[in-house]
């Protein structure tokens, strides 16, 4: 693999507020290429906001987001003033970052195949034939090649999410962000999506995953980040973090989670 001199993602004192509500209070985080990082935390802890800042779907208002060493979203104008960068530049800097959304966000008027081909043709200037080849390849990887002519509305949530992952894979991203990718799914459909994500992790994809699937986080991630009230409260190896939590917040968070699941067996 090509040696990279920069961190895949670097957050420096990242801050974000909505009105009086300070959602992120100064996050510092380094993510290396090839790493799988899971972000956990209660609702309102700022985990989705943090993820959305990484590909500038949210404009942060303090600190820095760096992708492969490049500052995202802001730049200096001719007078040296720090200001918002034009959309095209931000998009270009983020061309190797893809997000998979909780609500899939497939385009409902396009078939599965068209969904995957569209970014390739419109943005990456593939010919129709090349785009179709690539699309079939990635749809095969997520085991959806048998549904290429279906429309998103005809698919189950799990199938839609796999198509959404394929759509991202088509553009050959180096970094993939997952925003609660299984939270909108019926329980029996979660497994098929996690399976695809696991195989990506094994292929060495750099992944940042906001998730409530603790079992998955424990198995797949190199590092788990626990966010509470807009700050990283604890982070580290999942084996240690899940078994020997230090902070009270994390202990409380993990015990609610075990309680919820213990009733079953």
């Amino acid at each position: 693999m090509k040696k990279r001199s920069h961190k895949a993602i670097k957050l420096v004192d990242l801050k974000k507020h909505y009105g009086d509500n300070q959602v992120l209070k100064g996050i510092n985080l380094d993510i290396n290429y090839g790493e799988v990082v899971c972000i956990i935390g209660g609702s309102g802890s700022g985990k989705s906001t943090m993820l959305r800042c990484m590909n500038f779907l949210e404009k942060y208002d303090g600190g820095e987001v760096q992708i492969d060493g490049k500052l995202i979203g802001y730049g200096s104008d001719a007078q040296g003033n720090f200001q918002l960068a034009p959309s095209q530049i931000v998009q270009k800097d983020l061309s190797e970052v893809c997000m998979v959304f909780q609500q899939f966000n497939l385009w409902p008027h396009m078939s599965v195949l068209e969904n995957v081909m569209s970014p390739l043709i419109l943005v990456h200037k593939f010919s129709k034939k090349e785009a179709k080849e690539r699309a079939l390849k990635v749809l095969n990887k997520v085991d959806m090649a048998h549904k290429i002519d279906a429309y998103p509305g005809q698919l189950s949530g799990g199938q839609q999410q796999r198509v959404a992952i394929a759509r991202s894979l088509g553009t050959e991203p180096k970094i993939m962000l997952f925003d609660e990718p299984t939270s909108a799914l019926d329980p029996e459909l979660v497994g098929e999506v996690l399976k695809v994500m696991k195989s990506l992790a094994q292929d060495g994809m750099t992944m940042v995953i906001v998730t409530h699937e603790m079992g998955f986080a424990a198995q797949v991630s190199d590092k788990v980040i626990f966010l509470a009230k807009g700050l990283i409260e604890e982070q580290g190896d999942p084996k240690i973090l899940f078994t020997q939590p230090k902070s009270d917040n994390l202990k409380a968070f993990l015990s609610t989670w075990t309680e919820r699941n213990s009733g079953i067996v």
Binding site: S87, Q91, F101, N105, V123
Partner: peptide
Amino acid sequence: PLGQKEAAWNYGYSSWQ
């Protein structure tokens, strides 16, 4: 849904596209 436009933006679509 806003998410559909966010996805398009994320893939690098111009506002016209």
